[in-house]
Nucleic acid binder design. Sequence first.
DNA 1: GTAGGTGCAAACGCTTTGCATCTGG
DNA 2: CCAGATGCAAAGCGTTTGCACCTAC
Lengths: 152, 152
Amino acid sequence: MLKDVMRKKLREQGNRVTAQREAILKIFEEVGDHLGAEDVYQLLLRRRRRISKATVYRTLELLTSMGLLRRLEPNEGVYRYELAESSSNHHHAICTSCGTIMNIDLKDLENSIQQAAESIGFNMTNYSVVIYGLCPSCQKKINAETEMISSK
Amino acid sequence: MLKDVMRKKLREQGNRVTAQREAILKIFEEVGDHLGAEDVYQLLLRRRRRISKATVYRTLELLTSMGLLRRLEPNEGVYRYELAESSSNHHHAICTSCGTIMNIDLKDLENSIQQAAESIGFNMTNYSVVIYGLCPSCQKKINAETEMISSK
DNA sequence: GTAGGTGCAAACGCTTTGCATCTGG
DNA sequence: CCAGATGCAAAGCGTTTGCACCTAC
């Protein structure tokens, strides 16, 4: 269980196990991916857990440095986080219309990317692919609108 | 010439050609890639061109929306920009030690990425690959340090 | 008991905005 | 001449920090 992994890691590094840290990790287990600090804060409030934003920020950073969370590079605005275990082999497709983030598996590409990095003398530790475009539901919306117009 | 492209596009859209806009575009032609708003502002100052930061920000946004610049997704901190023409077929390798951004050509991957996007019903318009790791010069530094220690 | 964690509010840094003034077409 | 652009200063907004109080160990 992830909670136990966290407890173990915290203790190994001389950090403490606190209710706040467990609550924040639990949010990610329950709600899932791509949450920003504000999202986490609000989700905690909805669960009647009042944790200061400062603590949310500090905890997100701690969990990231411990390797439990991964921080996504924002294309726009806010840092978002996801469970690191779930993110080891996927990348992101971001809808430019509604902002939805979808996961996408690209592990077949790993070798080609690795090679390209080597070709410029770069020692790659990891990589991230972000795809921009329209998610299925925005495509539908746009198609529907187009039909409306052409049928007028 | 790029300046003429800009003039043409500005007029087409009913925007004005101003000295500030030309000066900012020129910075990118002369200095090149991966500049943040503050960089552009400082480079202008060094060239004795006092342009307010507000204008720098507004112009970077305008040039981006016109397709002349591209805004890079920051992994950390600040938005950076580069000439869009130079960025059509390259991606970025970011050194996690010194922060240097290197360009890398990955156009062979385009088809595979396109296909992966389609497989989840996503209509891709473009994509971005960011590679993290150590640039050649930081690798050297680290090797040198390691030798120093082992030879003690 | 005490080092480390938390909450609060203030500070921060990048970016955006309101408004008076200026200027390209 | 006047819609659009600029400069300035102030506001915004997500994030970080200083400090007094609290709590896990």
